[in-house]
Amino acid sequence: MNKHLARPLALIGVAILLLLVGQILMPGFLSLGQVSNQLKIAAFLGIFGLCQTIVIAAGGQGLDLSVGASATLGGILGAALMQGSNGLTAPALLAAVAAGGLVGIVNGVGIALMRVPPLVATLAIASVVDGGTILGVSIVHPANSASPLLVAIGGWASGGVPNIVIVWAVLGAIAVWLLSASAWGKRLTATGANPLAALLSGNHVTGIRIAAYGLSGALAALAGFLLTGYVGQAFFGLGDPYILTSVVVAVIGGATLAGGRAPYAGVAAAAIMMTVLVSLLTALAIGEAGRQIIFGLVLLGFLALDRMMKGSLRAVILSRFRTPTPIAAASSAPDTSRGG
């Protein structure tokens, strides 16, 4: 248990350290308003991070680069259906999530059944979904503003705690249970760790992978829908900033691209840490150039740290970037050390 908590705690520690550094450099950085604002931003990143956690856990170089497109679709479709009215918010939410889930299932079918590499499949589907969304909007010209209810959920606070953070906490708790305690979670990580073994022990590997991508799409659309409330309206590119940052927080949070691990507590902590880091850099008036460079260096640092902790660099080099064939994945255990 300790092993599972070490990373989230360390990441939260780094976040607190960054907050303290910010407070020293700029008094007021640690104010309650600031912190709750950062949690709000972290909540969205955290939900997108959950998408990646699930599909990465499913293995076979799992990735979902269509989360941005699904989120934009969810936001725009949701806003179009709710037409700014509170009463239509719930049906709009359902429709948005269903649309995102559908995109995810298409991804999953391409990846699990047709064996297209996840990177390529989700990118391709993303361009179709983005294109379709642009096309649809240019024909229909739908409403794009969020209902007051959605604005309240996305942007307001109740009792000092931002509503969106409560939503994230509930989602996060469900996610931690689903991924590490439920039977489905065990099946998912078993599929990611060793698809052949999972198949032979009676798991529906293909179905699990399709469901993982479906879940990712649905969550991305939900995040886009909530983002619409936070921003006030839906627009193109709503979800784009989260495509790669979600992968980054998943990796920093402890998901390994080889699959088989779904450490959502770590990913959630990573989302908080990254948000604090970015806001500290912004507050220090470090421009986009500096932020990009520091961002890249931090990511490289975490990757290197991961490698060092796993030891044996040579064994790692032997088991790189694999095709999603069950047998190859089965033989890619990190300890294939051999001389020569």
């Binding site: 790669l244 150039a289 460079i293 990511l299 990757l303 080099i317």
Partner: peptide, 30 residues
Amino acid sequence: LLVAYAGLPSLVATFATGAIWFGLALTIMP
């Protein structure tokens, strides 16, 4: 070097260096 010698996964490592290249390009020419 990062991919072959440090053994980092190329997908994420080159995404990180991409951010650095972009940052450097912005530094040279905002």
